[in-house]
Design a protein around this nucleic acid. Structure first.
Length: 423
RNA sequence: GGAGAGAUGCUCGAGUGGCUGAAGAGGCACGCCUGGAAAGCGUGUGUGCGCCCAAAGCGUACCGGGGGUUCGAAUCCCCCUCUCUCCGCCA
């Protein structure tokens, strides 16, 4: 959520910036300002009343000791009267604070100035293309057929065991998963990320911390008996490590990476876009997470983009990098780049990573702060990105690398696969 | 799942109604001392909110969370959550 401070200090600027996300914040901001006034005046009055109560209460003790019973009684009565007034003041303060918060939850993050204008995915800006799109010829098979042909992934078996969107990987298919996971983790470690293996099930507080709750409640699997949620991404447990934490500036930037299974209900998805590996309920992903200072977070973001690009280069997959326009960005991001790989048989681009800077938006909700040399405590910036999500990488690898002899394994993966071709 | 114990600041830990935002110790930071270091000595060391912003200062709230009793609660009462120990089950 946005900080109350930024809203009260620069309301017009906030409205202007949010317009890029096609979010009309005018009314919400006005309401917040109004409620904030109420809250402040309530608190001023409340604090004054409480101060008097405290003073009077202290005097009661000494008056009693001195045997001035009557005076003590007077003080007692005064306190009783004051207490009545504190009740309503407290209520008014709590109520306005609550309303402010509930409004703040509905206001998205402000995009950075360099975020492109635009409304939909059509308006995203292609920043860069890399690696050549292969010529496959007429008989190229989509990955779901290749998976069958080489007995790598059994979608029907997954349906039997769990349901649609839960594929079973077999043999080289399973090995390819493990190879990619290890490759991505090794690359992250070499780039200075600390490997974390977090729980894949989280409590409500964590869901709120990273913003999956309350708005995306329906997208997560929920174990109701224990009130726990299956994580949709490692971002949730890894970022929540820093919930309610005050970090030391010299420990920043924090660089964590984690491989986890990710679970998404994907309610409402259907059709050919979800065929094969394109959209799953459970999949493997390696996530990189950074916590940084406001001054350095842009630099961190660049490094993360370079890291992800490096992975795609090594995998020799045709890719493009999109700078998402204001309208297509997520609710919480201040700026976001998507990485897509070209799936040569499906002839379409598949998103394999989103690398975002959330500025202080997420940190404010998390209460993740740091203290610098000046002893001042302030909010961190949080960033994260996939590096990378497996299924669509596998789809592209299978399709792009199909040959009459089998599926060629890119050089970088050969040590992890133990072979250079799947026959 | 059964029985018991507990939850206080960065950490340990004292504290059974007012003088406690909190003793004491450790840690950490700064200063003195030293050729340098250690030891020693001294000082400092939470967060939120408010008082126009910032600093200083002041006020207020916070001793797991919520409610209550009282003029006054870390301290008494109720509810909840979590942690630990023992037993049972178990990868």
């Amino acid at each position: 959520m946005l900080t109350l401070k930024v809203i009260t200090e620069n309301p017009d600027e906030v409205v202007r910036k949010l317009a890029k996300k096609h979010f009309d914040a005018k009314e919400a901001i006005a309401k917040v300002l109004e409620l904030d006034k109420v809250r402040r005046s309530s608190q001023a009055q409340l604090d004054a009343a409480l101060a008097e109560i405290n003073t009077l209460s202290k005097s009661v003790g000494s008056l009693m000791k001195e045997g001035k019973k009557d005076e003590a009684e007077v003080a007692k009565n005064k306190v009783a009267a004051l207490k009545e007034s504190t009740k309503t003041l407290q209520e008014s303060m709590d109520k306005s604070q609550e309303e402010i918060n509930s409004i703040l939850y509905t206001i998205p993050n402000m995009p950075y100035d360099d975020v492109p204008e635009g409304k939909t995915a059509e308006d995203n800006v292609v920043e860069k293309m890399g690696n050549d799109i292969p010529e496959l010829g007429e008989n190229a098979l989509p990955h779901w057929e290749l998976a069958k042909k080489y007995d790598l992934i059994d979608f029907e078996l997954g349906v039997k065991i769990s349901g649609a969107g839960f594929p079973v990987y077999k043999g080289y298919g399973a090995r390819l998963q493990r190879a990619l996971i290890n490759f991505f983790l090794d690359e992250a470690r070499n780039a200075g990320y600390l490997e974390i293996m977090p729980p894949t099930v989280v409590n409500q507080a964590s869901g709120y911390g990273t913003g999956q709750l309350p708005d995306k409640e329906g997208q997560m699997y929920h174990c109701e008996v224990d009130d726990l949620y299956l994580i949709p991404t490692a971002e949730v447990p890894v970022t929540n490590i820093y919930r309610d934490v005050i970090l030391d500036e010299k420990d920043l930037p924090i660089k964590n990476c984690a491989y986890t299974q990710c679970f998404r209900r994907e309610a409402g998805s259907y059709g050919k876009d979800v065929r094969g590996l394109n959209r799953l309920h459970e999949f493997s992903k390696i996530e990189i997470v950074r916590i940084d200072t406001p001054e350095h977070s842009k630099e961190s973001h660049k490094e993360m983009l370079n890291h992800v690009e490096g992975l795609l280069k090594k995998l020799e997959l045709p890719y493009r990098i999109l700078h998402l326009c204001g309208g297509d960005m997520s609710f919480t991001a201040a700026t976001c780049y998507d990485f897509e790989v070209f799936s040569a048989a499906q002839k379409r681009w598949l998103e394999v990573s989103s690398v975002s800077n959330f500025d202080t938006y997420q940190a404010n909700r998390l209460k993740c702060r740091y203290k610098g040399a000046d002893k001042k405590t302030q909010l961190c910036h949080t960033l994260n990105g996939s590096a990378l999500a497996l299924p669509r990488i596998v789809a592209a690898l299978l399709e792009n690398n199909q040959t009459p002899e089998g599926i060629k394994i890119p050089k970088a993966l050969v040590p992890y696969m133990g072979c250079d071709i799947i026959k």
